[in-house]
Design a binder for these strands. Structure first.
Lengths: 331, 331
DNA sequence: CTGTTAGCGCGTTCAA
DNA sequence: TTGAACGCGCTAACAG
């Protein structure tokens, strides 16, 4: 910037004023400055600007990975953020356990004006240790310290809807694929709870053999788990899948064993990812309402950044069932 | 930091030295400093550190969206980047055409030590205008100015492999779904070219009616396009899809019209996304070799950041066909 | 081992 | 309308 000023025969402040349209600058001066800028290929140093300004106009979304669900959510989050003139960047929570959530270090969080943090893959210990002076909104389906703003889905209700819908369609023995019986609230236990409630409401027993947990929510793990169930001979005629990615694994397993969807087995997912529309015969799924989720979470964050200082908000986003070919019956 | 120094009764440099393990610091002093740090909840300001250091130890991957292909690639890119002790962040090229690639402004690129830029969705004009002093490596399947380092896939060869494989399996009339007849090299025209070569090699004619272009590579667009083909009565027994996402749309359309895969119609994709393994009957796809792609692209970028100054590299990553249930015949 | 000085590049504040 | 001084928070280099 000093170089530009020298080349144009003005002070650095005049350059700054020209570039930011701040104070009025004489037309001939402005022209000389712009010429010098072009000549030298000058570009502002945003790092310096950020230091000076004390803000970066950037919000980070931090999630365990960039795949599937997180990618789709991120694209949604971008809209309200960009609408406010800020930027969105994504970062991963450190993959290596050694690094102890490097991406979550207080210092790194400091690089952004605010942070949207997915709680997936973070245990309560880690969450408890997250410290930051900057605004932070949690996103996701597990219990977290009360002090944080937190936006999550109506997991139990969504799971209940999906399961009840399969019961309406004639299923009586429904596997809760990816469900767990954790204490406290996690995505898998909340959704299992909804499944349980639907079964109970319908007067069907809750048999623990139908709760099939696995460690990681991948299609591969889901597929293997359901293959094992099929091969064990346990009879079932419905699969409530904890997520769409899990449902895809289930569909793969059923197809491999020659079971027809929905004739032999109904299947539901959760999240309503884009692929749910296209995987034959169309996956009935609980719509995670990414639009409203993004709107709410980003809204809270923007208010916090603006200095709002109310008590921590805990928002539950309503969900709805989207019925497709993988189930019988009506919505 | 000054506050910490005051509280500990030392100079700011000592605080800095303690925090960075730079110069040796006496044990009692160090203890007092750490106590003050804890007390005050102090955290380094990375913005200031970056300004001072002239680098951010951060690499950006900039792509049109965070979905599907880009999310999977990003997760791969993270590995070699983190292995070198740097951080990866993702940013989107501005969605709104008005904003004129805000994310690509030279100033923003300056925030990172280096940039991996997906050329998808950027026309040559925009690419031509990209200026940055910082190292930048292009990723993706279209022509770009020679002056850039560029890593892309063996698109034509991959498409040829996939198409030839379907011909081996008995298909004679193969739709190039998402193919185009652009001048120059784009993803869709290169892949269409490979399809064409396989057809020609096999002595099958190349009928332009079998090239089905559409504007955006979504499953929805692909589905609609293939439905139109089916309903037009044009006979076909194979679908070479430009991407896996396109293939998913094709599978959806075929299923909706009651056509069996692979008995009535063989289908191939390109990218070998994770879902390709799970969508029944398993999608035969050209493996985009994300691992090698990431290795090469990040390798070049790291060398550039280290100051290496060779001529622009243009790397083509070899691909291979992964055969699954959506086609007959052997690999 | 610890402190002082200086400057990374910008923009706010005040003076001219 | 333009310029000079100052400091955002940090660390390299040197002095003590």
């Amino acid at each position: 910037m000093a170089d530009v000023a020298r080349a144009a025969g003005v002070s650095v402040m005049t350059v700054s004023n020209v570039l930011n349209d701040r104070l009025p600058v004489g037309e001939p001066t402005r022209a000389r400055v712009m010429a010098a800028v072009d000549e030298l290929g000058y570009q502002v140093n945003l790092t310096a600007r950020h230091l000076r300004a004390g803000r970066t106009d950037t919000i980070a979304f931090i999630a365990p990975s960039f795949h599937d669900y997180f990618g789709e959510v991120a694209d949604r989050l971008a809209l309200p953020i960009e609408a406010e003139g800020r930027h969105l960047v994504l970062a991963r929570t450190a993959a290596s356990p050694e690094e102890e959530m490097e991406a979550l270090s207080a210092a790194r969080l400091h690089l952004y004006d605010g942070v949207l943090l997915s709680v997936a893959g973070l245990d309560s210990d880690r969450l408890e240790r997250v410290r930051t002076a900057k605004p932070l909104v949690l996103l996701g389906e597990r219990d977290a310290p009360e002090r944080f703003d937190h936006v999550r889905l109506a997991n139990e209700e969504g799971a209940r809807l999906a399961t009840a819908h399969m019961i309406d369609g004639g299923s009586r023995r429904i596997v809760a694929l990816g469900g767990t019986i954790d204490p406290g609230h996690t995505m898998s236990s909340d959704r299992r709870l909804g499944w349980e409630r639907a079964m109970t409401d319908a007067g069907l027993g809750v048999d623990p053999r139908y709760v099939v947990p696995f460690p990681v929510y991948s299609s591969a793990a889901a597929r293997d788990a359901l293959l094992a169930v099929i091969d064990s001979g346990l009879p079932f005629d419905g699969v409530f899948s904890t997520t769409d990615v899990v449902a895809l694994g289930a569909i793969s397993a059923l197809s491999e064993r020659g079971l027809r969807i929905p004739e032999d087995v109904q299947v539901t997912g959760f999240d309503n990812l884009e692929m749910a529309q296209f995987v034959p015969p169309g996956l009935t799924s609980v719509d995670a309402n990414h639009e409203e989720l993004a709107e709410k979470a980003v809204g809270i964050l923007h208010r916090r950044i603006a200095g709002w200082d109310g008590p921590a908000e805990h928002v539950v986003i309503p969900v709805r069932l989207v019925v497709r070919g993988s189930t019988r019956g009506q919505a």
